[in-house]
Nucleic acid binder design. Structure first.
Length: 470
RNA sequence: UCCCCUGUAGCUCAAUUGGUAGAGCGGGCGGCUGUUAACCGCCAGGUUACUGGUUCAAGUCCAGUCGGGGGAGCCA
């Protein structure tokens, strides 16, 4: 008999009640009743809830196997689906057969007990933490949000471009990169002047893991108009915080013929689309997050999807901060036009001053990347950051500099070698158009949506400094 | 990388001014029960991260090492 997913059993319970069904999964709890039955709750990950099987002691393997079930055992249960006689669940299965696929070796030391574990501890047993309520929910939420991202862009006419993970350009400039090499570390080939001879390396040149798909995806934007990347991204920064990973997933749309406002609008619509999908499709998991992780998370998302985005000019943001200082708010770092805002400033803006996510636009050119479009005021570039309470920067984007002379002059000012960017510059030589894009950190969106405190707990296997087990 | 905090049973945590290690959960056995964070009784389980020091005495104080967490920087 084909097994039914527990989610389907609950979703279509009225059609299943009165029929015989088979479910397959892992035991969460077993409770015995001397009325001659045991209650076995099992989960298959298809939804938050477990299904309760009522197992009678008349089964052949009741003494030999059922009474030995502990958390984590894998089973297949067949029986009649009925409306539950007890409280706590709508339907249950009156088991007529229970097959054990695998017992838990030494239940005393099985790392996942039904009680509460700390997230720090669960990171040490990451191969098993997927069996907990929280990480099961995280897995379903990740999937829901990822599918929503693709649906949103597809419906808007964007094409998903698979930009490379290994990059040969040493000019991405968004942070420290991981080197990709097959050279023998114990015997590195050298050039006559003592440098590493990368011509002998696998690619015949120095290569790294990508820190952003942006430069590559811009080339496809200049042909397919509306494109995006969604894939893993790598930063070799020695960042040890609850908001940084060495390997994370990033969503980077690039829109031809778009300006900064259209860019911000796209980011707003994307985030709203994602969170609407989450509220609609994962009510069970969000209810759990609201009960156990962050009471305000559902309320926060509902407000987010129904309210217009707050927007403010960088200059106005600085003015608001300066005004706050005059009124007695204390910051560790001074505020004045031209600074790259510190975390404390961003947090105050989004958490205290605005009280929800805010898009800050048109930053001073001197603190932003070379490819951002220079504004007419000669002081700012068309950059925008979206700041969210509890996270800080969740989106960073800009309108790109499409004028070759302006791009070149900026690169000269910043001491960049134009030859290294030859193909990027070619885009400005051959049919250039205004365009804009942004980067959305997938895990940061999940943190915001669920209220989870640490980014290492919203990705299956976190990669961070000194952390690459599993 | 810097600053602060922290490391005790399989897990979550106690242990007063330094006085010789305890509870809940989980596990085993038994009792009770259409149970559901079940409940009740009994049992097992510890080189208090590691190394050294101070002291009559160290889980507790000091130094170092390693691990973890929070904050900062970098950013998504």
């Amino acid at each position: 008999m084909l097994a039914v997913r527990i989610a389907d059993l609950y979703k279509h319970s009225e059609t299943h009640i009165g029929t015989t069904a088979t479910v397959q999964g892992w035991v969460r709890t077993r409770r015995d009743s001397k009325a001659g039955i045991s209650f076995v709750a099992i989960t298959d990950g298809s939804c938050f809830d477990t299904i309760q099987a009522v197992v009678p002691n008349t089964l052949d393997n009741y003494e030999s196997e059922v009474l030995k079930l502990t958390a984590g055992c894998s089973v297949e249960i067949t029986g009649l689906v009925v409306a539950s006689q007890g409280k706590g669940q709508s339907v249950e299965i009156q088991a007529t057969a229970l097959k054990v696929y695998g017992f838990v070796d030494d239940p005393d030391t099985y790392p996942i007990s039904p009680k509460q574990h700390s997230f720090e501890y669960l990171r040490d047993v990451a191969h098993l933490r997927s069996r907990t309520n929280t990480f099961g929910a995280i897995g379903r939420v990740r999937h829901c949000l990822a599918m929503a991202v693709h649906r949103f862009f597809h419906e808007q006419g964007f094409l998903w471009i698979h930009t490379p993970i290994i990059t040969g350009s040493d000019c991405e400039g968004a942070g420290q990169m991981f080197r990709v090499s097959t050279l023998d570390l114990a015997n590195i080939p050298r050039t006559p002047d003592g440098k590493v001879d990368y011509t002998q390396d696998f690619f015949g040149r120095e290569t790294n893991l990508t820190v952003s798909g942006q430069l590559n995806v811009e080339t496809w934007c200049m042909a397919l108009s509306k494109v995006y990347t969604f894939g893993p991204t790598f930063r070799a920064e020695n960042s040890n915080t609850s908001r940084h990973l060495a390997e994370f997933w990033m969503i980077e749309p690039e829109i031809a013929f778009a300006d900064l406002l259209a860019d911000a609008k796209c980011a707003e619509e994307l985030l709203k689309y994602m969170f609407r999908a989450l509220l609609a499709e994962r009510g069970d998991d969000m209810k759990f997050f609201a009960e156990r992780i962050d009471k305000t998370c559902i309320d926060r998302l509902e407000k987010f999807v129904s309210a217009d985005f707050a927007k403010m000019e960088y200059g106005d943001a600085i003015a608001a901060l300066e005004d706050a200082v005059k009124k007695g708010v204390k910051f560790d770092y001074p505020v004045k036009w031209g600074i790259d805002m510190q975390s404390e400033h961003e947090r105050w803006l989004t958490e205290t001053y605005i009280g929800r996510p805010v898009a800050v636009m048109n930053y001073p050119r001197d603190i932003k990347a070379f490819y951002m479009r220079q504004n007419d005021d000669g002081k700012t570039v068309a950059a925008m950051d979206i700041l969210a309470p509890g996270i800080g920067e969740i989106v960073g984007g800009s309108q790109r500099e499409e004028r070759l002379e302006r791009l070149d002059s900026r690169m000269d000012e910043m001491g960049l070698h134009k030859a290294d960017y030859w193909w990027y510059r070619d885009l400005r030589r051959y049919g250039t158009v205004p365009h804009a894009g942004f980067g959305l950190g997938f895990e940061r969106a999940i943190i915001y949506a669920t209220g989870m405190a640490n980014i290492r707990d919203v990705i299956p296997f976190p990669r961070a400094p000194k952390t690459a087990q599993f």
